[in-house]
Simulated assay, not measured.
Amino acid sequence: MADNQSVLTVSIVTPDGKVYDGQTSLLVVKTTTGELGIMPNHVPVIASLAVDEARVLRDDGNKNEIAVNGGFIEFSDNVATIVADSAEKQGDIDVTRAEGARKRAEERIRKAKEAQDSDSMRRAEVALRRAINRINVANK
């Protein structure tokens, strides 16, 4: 990555602190309206993020994958900042814990359906999406 105009800096932060900080030539995230690829010199953008992964292409052709659970992205002047509710790098995800969270969320969904409790159902569905996202990123 030769000059500052051909790279972008990516920073992913959560209420618990910085999860990722690095430079890349391509960042791909999923917004609430679809997938967004950002390369150096992209037009400024602010977007809400879906529960999904952020993919950061590395110089060697591989990529860093980070499970991002909501939040938003702001990009300008070749700096992308993701502010997420929570985020974990692929290697930091405890799959056993994520599987447990998935099972608990599925049980909460079952109970909310029986009780016809739409608020509990929505919260449980979000918890399930987050658990599945973590499992998917960890297993790539």
Rank of each mutant, 00 (worst) to 15 (best):
S6L: 13
S6H: 15
V7L: 14
L8Q: 03
S11M: 14
P15A: 05
D16C: 06
G17M: 07
S25D: 08
L27V: 13
V28M: 14
V29K: 09
G34I: 08
E35Q: 13
I38Y: 08
I38P: 04
I38R: 06
M39C: 12
M39P: 07
P40D: 08
V45H: 08
V45Y: 10
D52R: 04
E53V: 03
E53R: 12
R55G: 05
R55N: 11
R55V: 15
V56F: 04
L57A: 13
L57I: 11
L57P: 01
R58W: 05
R58D: 04
D59C: 01
N62R: 14
N64I: 12
N64R: 14
I66A: 04
V68G: 02
V68M: 06
N69C: 11
E74D: 10
S76Q: 15
D77Q: 12
N78P: 08
N78C: 09
T81Q: 09
I82W: 09
V83H: 06
A87V: 07
E88Y: 10
E88M: 09
K89P: 01
Q90K: 13
Q90D: 02
Q90A: 05
G91A: 10
D92R: 09
D92C: 08
D94I: 07
V95C: 06
T96K: 15
A98Q: 05
E99P: 02
R102K: 14
R102E: 09
A105L: 11
E106L: 08
R108T: 00
R110V: 03
A112Q: 06
A112M: 09
K113Y: 15
E114C: 12
A115T: 00
A115F: 03
D119C: 03
M121E: 11
R122H: 10
R123H: 07
I132T: 00
R134M: 07
R134K: 14
I135F: 02
V137Q: 03
N139M: 12
